[in-house]
């Protein structure tokens, strides 16, 4: 159980760093979605199922789609 928590926190940090440092904005959005999914799993493990359902539906589902639509209307690569 506690090893699972450590692994989840490790992947959480890695996906957050990937979302910050990558140049491709689409990759960044996907990393943000992974981050949201792990956060919702952590909420569920910490006995907060209400917040977990909300995070999984809004953070991992809808906000990813909204960011992808916003990238479609602008550029995909980050400028220097």
């Amino acid at each position: 159980m506690i090893i699972l928590l450590y692994l989840a926190i490790l992947v959480l940090g890695l996906s957050a760093l990937c979302a910050i440092f990558t140049k491709d904005l689409l990759v960044s959005v996907v990393a943000l979605g992974v981050n949201s999914l792990i956060v919702s799993a952590l909420f569920f493990l910490m006995h907060a199922p209400d917040v977990a359902i909300t995070e999984a539906a809004i953070g991992a589902g809808l906000s990813t789609a909204i960011y992808v639509f916003a990238i479609r209307h602008t550029k995909r690569q980050e400028e220097k």
């Binding site: 209400d50 909300t54 539906a57 789609a65």
Partner: peptide, 24 residues
């Protein structure tokens, strides 16, 4: 989800988000 909000985990906001993802 939002009809059983007072019995099981969930409620209005997650139910609305699930409906919106269906329309998406």
């Amino acid at each position: 989800i939002f009809i059983h909000g007072h019995l099981t985990p969930g409620g209005g906001f997650p139910g609305g988000a699930v409906i919106a993802s269906g329309f998406l």
